[in-house]
Simulated scan of single mutants.
Amino acid sequence: MPLESPAALEFLLSRRSRPAKTLVAPVPTREQLMLLLTAAARSPDHGKLEPWRFIVLEKGAMSRLAALTEDRGHALGKAPEDITKGRNQFDLGQLAVAVIEVQKPSEKIPTIEQTYSAGAVCLALLNAALAAGWGANWLSGWVSHDRVFCDQALGLADNERVAGFVHIATEGTAPPERPRPDLNAITSWVSE
């Protein structure tokens, strides 16, 4: 019989990201954040490559990133509403962890598995923050895919890209529950 963890299962069955725009101060201390990063780093990692790293974006960095987002949005010809949306995650952000995918050469581990691992780290960090009582949200958006932004804002190497920005702070207003997938519509069973 497997060892059960009813509290963990109940958390996973009821977990809910909190909209980043509703997150307010205070944020986790560095010690509290290191515990969350430790949990995230226990994600599946075939070959033990550690194909990811963390960049912690504190409040003081947010205005610089917001301004760079606006500059890049104009340079790319983005619509004003897209620029505003891109800016808002930094203008309103209290603290975020940029999870950086780091593609590493490997004869055994395909690059797609390294990408999956970085995504798993994002979800693990999000869930760790929520389980610790913080509000949290995993965002990306056009800025995370703009190479110039990533180079200027985060100093990424050629083999690196943003897997996501995980915003962590105190939950403001709780969001309403939203519809969930119809499991019967998306599940197949193979018996033979």
Rank of each mutant, 00 (worst) to 15 (best):
M1Y: 10
A7I: 13
F11Y: 08
S14H: 12
S17C: 09
R18G: 12
V24T: 14
A25Y: 08
R30N: 15
E31W: 11
L33R: 10
M34E: 15
A40I: 12
A41Q: 08
R42C: 11
D45N: 14
G47P: 01
L49S: 05
P51L: 04
P51A: 01
F54R: 00
K59M: 08
R64C: 02
R64L: 06
A66N: 00
E70V: 05
A75F: 02
L76V: 04
G77D: 00
A79R: 14
D82N: 09
G86A: 00
G93C: 03
E101G: 07
K104H: 10
E107G: 13
P110A: 10
T111A: 14
G119E: 05
G119W: 02
L123H: 14
A129I: 11
A132K: 04
G133Q: 09
N137D: 10
S140P: 07
G141F: 03
V143P: 15
S144K: 05
R147G: 00
Q152P: 04
N159A: 05
R161F: 07
F165L: 09
V166S: 00
I168W: 03
A169M: 05
A169C: 03
A174T: 12
R178Y: 11
P179I: 00
D182S: 04
L183R: 14
N184E: 13
W189H: 13
